[in-house]
């Protein structure tokens, strides 16, 4: 329970969020490189195709800049940004 509380608390600081379609993601890592806040990482686990897909490792850091979406060759990233 305490863990979830912490995550929800951290969420409040975040201005953006990224949803990666981990089924389609090929784990190229370009979004990880393009992320200015180190929000994204490649997962230790692999998807059905054997790729270490990208995910929000540090969701509290996301600023919703959409750089990850822009460079993604497989169009598997959706980006959300909280309204000010």
């Amino acid at each position: 329970m305490r863990n979830i509380d912490k995550i929800v608390n951290d969420m409040a600081k975040a201005r953006g969020a990224v949803v990666v379609d981990s089924v389609i993601c090929k784990g190229c890592g370009l979004c990880v490189e393009a992320c200015p806040t180190n929000t994204l990482q490649l997962a230790a686990e692999v998807n059905d195709k054997g790729y270490n897909y990208s995910y929000m490792a540090a969701p509290e850091l996301c600023i919703g800049c959409a750089n990850c979406g822009a460079v993604c060759p497989d169009s598997c990233i959706a980006v959300y940004r909280a309204k000010a």
């Binding site: 929800v8 969420m11 949803v19 979406g69 990233i77 959706a78 959300y80 940004r81």
Partner: peptide, 17 residues
């Protein structure tokens, strides 16, 4: 995590396929 992230809501979507 996604289920508890309040930012992930249709009105906040700024980039998608």
């Amino acid at each position: 995590i996604d289920t508890v992230n309040p930012i992930i809501a249709p009105e906040n979507l700024i980039y998608a396929k």
